[in-house]
């Protein structure tokens, strides 16, 4: 008889209790009444639209910034700006997201950005995008920089000997070779943005139909005592996340298969 390891004994029940069971608790509590109320609520669909649109913009901005960071990593790794950027990359991961939201509020609120509107950039969709970007950018930067690290520097040296300036070599050689990393960075940034709540609510607010996103919709419904609607919206979030994870997994598998057959 096979000897059972202590790790198996610990892992299996704890995984089901702490990860699987809470997810199941949401899905198991979805009711027809809750579904009818939630899906019939135009504010819910506004929150879905806001969430998807702002997460898409934040992920796109994250990838662009991450590509800029990787450029510094390849061509100017010894500079002060690279070192600061590298150090600051980990900051949003360690920082409480309420602090991140407050920082954005102070930086882009009416005190500093009063010219942009009565509240500055705060409590607008731009604020939601910036809050999502602030917390998701480090993931994109780390994903792209770790792939850039694997690119053979000799390819860049050769491209330059053939007449490419550093930005041109980056565009013609590095970016095409970072294709997979760019895609992964986008999906990770998008997923992280979808789940952001604290920074978004602090800086973007929670204005129904304007800056409310799915995470804040769930919070609002719990506060209002509409638990069945909160549960339905949460189940919707879970399905969305599962779809994203599945998409990422399939993409990785597809690329691995293409590489094997090429």
């Amino acid at each position: 008889m096979r000897k059972v390891s202590i790790w198996e004994v610990l892992f299996v029940p704890l995984f089901f209790l702490l990860i699987f069971y809470p997810i199941l608790a949401i899905l198991g509590n979805v009711t027809l009444d809750g579904m009818a109320k939630t899906f019939g609520d135009p504010v819910f669909w506004d929150a879905v639209k806001n969430t998807l649109g702002t997460a898409f913009c934040a992920a796109l901005l994250g990838v662009l910034m991450a590509l800029g960071f990787a450029y510094f990593y390849i061509f100017h790794p010894g500079t002060v700006i690279y070192r600061i950027a590298d150090f600051m990359n980990d900051l949003p991961i360690a920082l409480p997201h309420t602090v991140a939201g407050l920082a954005l509020l102070l930086a882009f609120g009416r005190n500093m950005f009063g010219f942009a509107g009565p509240t500055g950039l705060a409590f607008t969709l731009v604020a939601v995008i910036l809050a999502m970007f602030f917390v998701s950018y480090p993931l994109a930067a780390r994903t792209i920089a770790s792939s850039a690290e694997e690119i053979d520097r000799e390819l860049i040296n050769v491209a330059r000997s053939l007449g490419d300036s550093p930005p041109r070599a980056y565009r013609r050689i590095v970016i095409p070779l970072l294709g997979e990393a760019i895609f992964s960075a986008f999906v990770l940034g998008f997923s992280r943005s979808l789940s952001e709540f604290a920074a978004v609510i602090m800086f973007g607010g929670n204005v129904p139909g304007m800056t409310m996103v799915l995470a804040s919709y769930v919070f609002t419904k719990v506060e209002e005592g509409e638990v069945s609607m909160a549960v339905t919206a949460s189940a919707f979030c879970i399905l969305l996340s599962l779809l994203l994870v599945l998409f990422l997994r399939l993409e990785v598998k597809f690329r691995a298969r293409s590489k094997r057959t090429a």
């Binding site: 040296n157 053939l162 300036s165």
Partner: peptide, 20 residues
Amino acid sequence: LPPEERQLGYVPQNTGLFPH
């Protein structure tokens, strides 16, 4: 001069061919 302005043909050890 930077590498791109030297007009020096360079063949590296591992061929340095652009894989894509």
